[in-house]
Computed example of a mutant assay.
Amino acid sequence: MPRDRDAEGRARSERPRDGLGRPLPYGVEGVPRQPEGVVRTPAETVREAQRLLDAGMPFHAHEVFEDAWKSGPAGERDLWQGLAQLAVGLTHAARGNAAGGARLLLRGAARISGQNDPDVRPYGIDVGGLVRWARALAARAGEVTDAAAEAPRLLGE
């Protein structure tokens, strides 16, 4: 079967995906994908990502954060990339990839903590709480992780 390509000829998988972003066989109904390239306000980004995290779909939340880092100011890139790494780390942990999940959780925690004083809350985001959450989840690598049950609270609520 030929690979899926976008209008510019770049590879793009159109296979359906499950809630953790794993590809499913063609013809099977999957979870709707996040549209790419959506420009949201920071508040909309946080709200949509939290909704997806709470639903056990951290892979999809990572795509929301990816849109934010691609469309936002350069000075906020590390914040949004770090949040995306946290979401992907949770995705890997929920898929059973403990080592990869732990590595991404720690990388994301380092990225967001390196750019912000843990007591500063850009857009209300609880950076300190997220760093603690990521480190604690990474330390439990190897345990079965339920993405919805382990979803972080972005605003620390």
Rank of each mutant, 00 (worst) to 15 (best):
L104P: 10
N97R: 10
A11F: 04
G9Q: 01
L104T: 12
L52K: 11
R33H: 14
K70S: 10
E150N: 00
R33F: 12
R153G: 01
Y123I: 02
L130G: 08
V127I: 15
Y123G: 00
N97K: 02
Q81K: 14
G30N: 09
L137K: 05
L53T: 13
D54F: 03
N97F: 08
A93N: 06
G114I: 03
A99S: 15
V28D: 11
N97E: 06
M1T: 08
T145K: 00
A149M: 06
A7R: 15
D117P: 01
A136I: 13
G108Y: 03
P16Y: 11
R135C: 12
A55D: 00
A74K: 15
D4S: 04
L90G: 02
A102W: 04
D54H: 06
G129M: 09
G124C: 04
V39H: 14
L104V: 07
D4P: 08
R3K: 13
E48T: 15
I125H: 06
G101L: 08
A7H: 15
G156T: 08
V131D: 11
M1S: 06
A99F: 15
V120Y: 13
V144F: 00
A109N: 07
R47E: 15
R40K: 13
G82H: 00
R3P: 07
Q50G: 14
P16C: 14
S13Y: 04
D117A: 07
R33N: 13
D119F: 05
G82S: 05
A93V: 03
A149E: 11
A94T: 09
G37D: 13
A74R: 14
L52Q: 12
A99M: 13
G124E: 02
D126S: 07
R12T: 14
E66I: 04
R15H: 14
